[in-house]
Amino acid sequence: MTSFLSHLTVDCANAYDLSEWWKPVLGYTDLPGDPNEPGHEECMIVDPDTGQQVLFIEVPDRKTTKNRLHLDLRPRPGSGGRDDELERLLDHGATQVADHRGIYGPGSGWVVLADPEGNEFCILRSQEEIDEQTQAAQG
């Protein structure tokens, strides 16, 4: 017997505000028939294509150290590359924590960002960027 991932839960101070911040980052929406509203202590968002869900739940504890678990985000196909996504998320209010672009040579690496409550996540290269670099290396 095995288990499957039902949803990812993010502890936070303000479930509604953080769920609203993450919706345009991920392209997610509220659950059909269950809209998130200000004051809700639990707010679920869902990927309309895959059904993957993220639950934001209010807790009294503040984030004080590095995440033990974080999201690695890759730009969706056709939406641009890593640097385009980085610019979009910085404009959206993310904070840059660390820049590891080029760490393994030109075009490689990732950027660590934080959401408004300090939860860290990474922006990776798009699959198109990876494919282009692989094709160039193969000649």
Rank of each mutant, 00 (worst) to 15 (best):
D91S: 08
D30H: 12
A13T: 12
Q133D: 14
G33N: 04
P60M: 07
A98D: 07
G102C: 06
H92R: 07
D84N: 07
Y28Q: 02
V97D: 08
G80W: 04
L90N: 09
A136L: 14
R74Y: 06
D17R: 05
S108M: 04
F4G: 09
C12E: 09
T65W: 13
P77I: 11
V97H: 00
E58S: 07
A137R: 12
G78Q: 05
E132I: 06
E128L: 02
M44C: 11
P106G: 13
C12S: 13
G139R: 11
C12K: 07
R125C: 07
M1Y: 09
F56V: 03
I45S: 01
L89H: 04
E37V: 03
R62P: 02
R74E: 15
S6Y: 15
D83F: 04
E87F: 03
V111L: 10
P35R: 02
N36Q: 06
E128C: 06
H40R: 05
Q138K: 15
E85D: 13
L26G: 02
Q96C: 08
P38R: 07
H40P: 01
E120A: 12
K23W: 03
S79K: 15
D72V: 12
P75I: 10
K23I: 11
A137V: 05
P32R: 10
P38G: 01
L8D: 06
D99E: 11
L26S: 11
L18A: 03
V10H: 04
Q138V: 06
P38L: 03
A94D: 04
R62M: 07
R101T: 10
G78I: 02
Q127Y: 09
